[in-house]
């Protein structure tokens, strides 16, 4: 019916929308990187950090998991102004969503680290490795492999969350879609359906990519306990 005519009309705006979607992808990359680095650190502190640091790490995780993404975005965007610093939307969004993702990623990494049998660390220490060496050469290589499935879930989740950054004036795809809608109200449905389809493509390509990564780094016997072929 006429819906398909509308879709055709939206085609005019497609290049602009696709370009805007690149901003989403950039934000995705930034926030995942921040989340990865901090998430790994937090997980290590939780497992190896001792009472003070460990508790602090757990607290950090709880706070950044319990506050809604939108609230975090606002805090990181409007917060610095209160202290006399101005911050660009992209940076604010990367930090807000990055810290949030670090909380979820830390949970994934912690689970993976704890799935590794204690004997691995003991054997590494018996060779004369310091704790840090052992973590670097024995624990983390295994933990990151074990974490891939869980991490894929986080990835899928977070791809879609990049749209939330529109609320702090980031010029990503949803903001542009809204502009199209403001120009031509009758194109609203068609435009947002197109945006939805773009994200479907992102989600599925991302998952396929991560599937490849998992296969590339797979090691026989190294799987989460209880899954097929696991030696753990």
């Amino acid at each position: 019916m006429e819906f398909f005519l509308k879709l055709g009309e939206v085609g005019r705006y497609l290049p602009m929308l696709l370009r805007a979607s690149l901003v989403n992808l950039e934000l995705l990359g930034a926030l995942l990187a921040i989340g990865f680095l901090i998430g790994t650190l937090v997980a290590l502190l939780q497992v190896y950090g001792g009472r003070l640091l460990g508790t602090g790490a757990y607290l950090y995780e709880w706070v950044f998991r319990s506050i809604p993404a939108l609230v975090l975005l606002f805090l990181f965007y409007y917060g610095p102004a209160r202290f006399g610093v101005s911050i660009k939307p992209f940076l604010a969004a990367s930090l807000a969503l990055g810290f949030r993702s670090s909380a979820y990623q830390s949970q994934i990494f912690r689970g993976a680290i704890q799935a590794i049998p204690t004997g691995q660390m003991v054997a590494a220490r018996a060779l004369g490795m310091s704790r840090i060496r052992a973590i670097r050469h024995v624990i983390l290589p295994q933990a990151f492999r074990l974490a891939i499935p869980g991490w894929s879930n986080e990835f899928s989740s977070v791809v879609k969350d990049t749209t939330l950054a529109y609320a702090v004036t980031l010029n990503e795809i949803m903001r542009h879609a809204k502009i199209v809608m403001d120009n031509q109200y009758d194109l609203a449905m068609a435009t947002f359906i197109v945006v939805a389809l773009v994200f479907l493509v992102f989600t599925y390509s991302g998952n396929a990519l991560l599937g490849q990564v998992e296969r590339r780094f797979r090691i026989p016997g190294l799987q989460m306990p209880g899954t097929q072929g696991a030696m753990l």
């Binding site: 819906f3 529109y166 609203a188 449905m189 947002f192 939805a196 479907l200």
Partner: peptide, 23 residues
């Protein structure tokens, strides 16, 4: 299930609030 899990919540919200009036 694939549609609603694979697309952003914000987009779904706007489809309902801004899109449905088109129909």
């Amino acid at each position: 299930i694939h549609f609603f899990r694979g697309t952003p919540l914000l987009t779904q919200l706007f489809i309902v609030y801004f899109g449905l009036p088109n129909w």
